[in-house]
């Protein structure tokens, strides 16, 4: 490995500042897991197909297997470890919206961004967002219930 390809990458993750020495070709997912020990985001395909690696960048869900860590410079990255008592977490627990839990961090990050950005999301919008993630254990119905319950709470607290 030529040393020129490694460089110092300053990152802001979950509100904390980090500086890592990584390859410029390293993906954000790899750096989060292997350099920062944040293993919440999961590798499921490394091909943009499954959503297990979803994290937020400036509040937008992205698949961290398809972006370079170096692209995150100057952005604010949020991983599942950065969520504290988000309503969607409790909703996932209460609605049994996971079994093995492997798809869960990705699903939760995507769903969290959805309910925060679009509290009045309609059914087609929920679908459009959440079809980005694959779950093999649940029937998706449980996840739908969890997301809808949070949206309903948001609606109720607005009224």
């Amino acid at each position: 490995m030529s040393s020129s390809s490694k460089c110092e990458i300053p990152l802001t993750v979950n509100g904390e500042k980090y500086s890592v020495i990584a390859r410029q070709a390293d993906t954000l997912l790899f750096v989060l897991r292997n350099h920062l020990g944040l293993t919440g985001a999961k590798p499921g395909c490394l091909n943009g197909d499954c959503g297990a690696c979803t994290v937020l960048m400036d509040k937008t869900p992205i698949k961290s297997c398809m972006i370079l860590a170096i692209e995150a410079i100057g952005k604010s990255v949020t991983t599942i470890e950065g969520l504290r008592d988000a309503p969607i977490q409790r909703a996932f627990v209460e609605h049994f919206a996971f079994q093995c839990g492997y798809c869960t961090p990705g699903f939760i990050m995507n769903a969290h961004a959805l309910v925060e950005s679009t509290p009045n999301a309609s059914e087609p919008i929920i679908e459009k967002w959440l079809e980005s993630n694959v779950c093999r254990c649940t029937s998706y119905f449980e996840i739908e219930q969890a997301v809808k319950s949070v949206l309903a709470e948001k609606q109720a607290s607005k009224d």
Partner: peptide
């Protein structure tokens, strides 16, 4: 555009 890949991928 909206029919390509999935929404998270379309953010990228």
């Amino acid at each position: 555009a909206s029919e390509i890949a999935d929404r998270t991928a379309r953010n990228q």
